[in-house]
Amino acid sequence: MSDKPLLKIEHLKKYYEVPGKGELHAVDDISFEIMPYETLGLVGESGCGKSTVGNVLTRLQNATAGHAYFDGEDIVSANGTRLKEIRKKMQMVFQDPYSSLNPKKTVRSILEAPLRIHKLVGKDQMDKRVEELAEMVGLEKYVLDKFPHELDGGKRQMVGIARALSLNPKFIVCDEPVSALDVSVQATIINLLMDMQKKMGLTYLFVSHDLSVVRHISTRIAVMYLGQIVEMAPTDMIFENTMHPYTIALLSAVPKIEFANKVDRIVLKGDVPSPMNPKPGCRFAPRCWMACDKCKTITPELREVEEGHFVACPYWEEAQKKARERL
Rank of each mutant, 00 (worst) to 15 (best):
I190W: 09
R156L: 07
L250V: 06
T235S: 13
M158D: 06
I217Y: 11
G22M: 09
V263H: 09
K14Y: 14
E176I: 00
G122F: 01
L40I: 04
A26F: 10
L211M: 11
E112K: 06
C313G: 08
A249G: 05
P286E: 03
E240T: 04
E306I: 00
Y142A: 04
L12S: 14
L83A: 01
A222V: 05
E140Y: 10
K269R: 13
T299F: 07
G154M: 00
I117E: 14
V93R: 06
E135Y: 12
M276A: 06
E45A: 10
L144F: 11
Y37R: 06
P114L: 02
C295G: 05
C174G: 14
E38L: 02
Y98G: 05
R215N: 12
G160H: 03
Y37F: 11
L211H: 05
M276T: 04
V121Y: 09
Y16I: 12
V207G: 14
A253Q: 07
S109I: 00
G41A: 08
A253R: 04
K262V: 14
K322W: 07
F239L: 02
V173F: 13
R129L: 04
K269A: 12
K170V: 06
M290W: 03
A180Q: 07
E306M: 05
K8N: 14
I34M: 04
L327N: 12
A134Q: 04
R82H: 09
P169H: 11
D152H: 05
V263W: 07
K89D: 15
E318P: 04
I257H: 03
P177G: 13
E307T: 03
E73G: 02
V43I: 12
P255H: 05
L250K: 06
S274G: 09
G308Y: 01
S208I: 00
S166I: 00
F94T: 05
I34A: 03
H149E: 12
V18D: 11
S252M: 02
D293Q: 08
S77H: 08
H118Q: 10
I221D: 06
A249N: 05
S212E: 13
H25V: 04
N102M: 07
G47S: 09
G54M: 03
I9T: 13
E131Y: 08
Y142K: 14
L165T: 02
R324D: 10
C48T: 07
V76R: 00
I9S: 10
R303S: 13
P300I: 00
R265V: 14
N168F: 04
L205Q: 07
S100L: 10
E10V: 13
G20S: 11
P114T: 03
G122W: 00
K104T: 11
I9E: 08
K296E: 08
R156D: 12
S2T: 15
T81P: 03
E112T: 04
P255Y: 06
Q228H: 13
E132N: 13
A285T: 02
G281Y: 06
T106G: 02
V137Q: 12
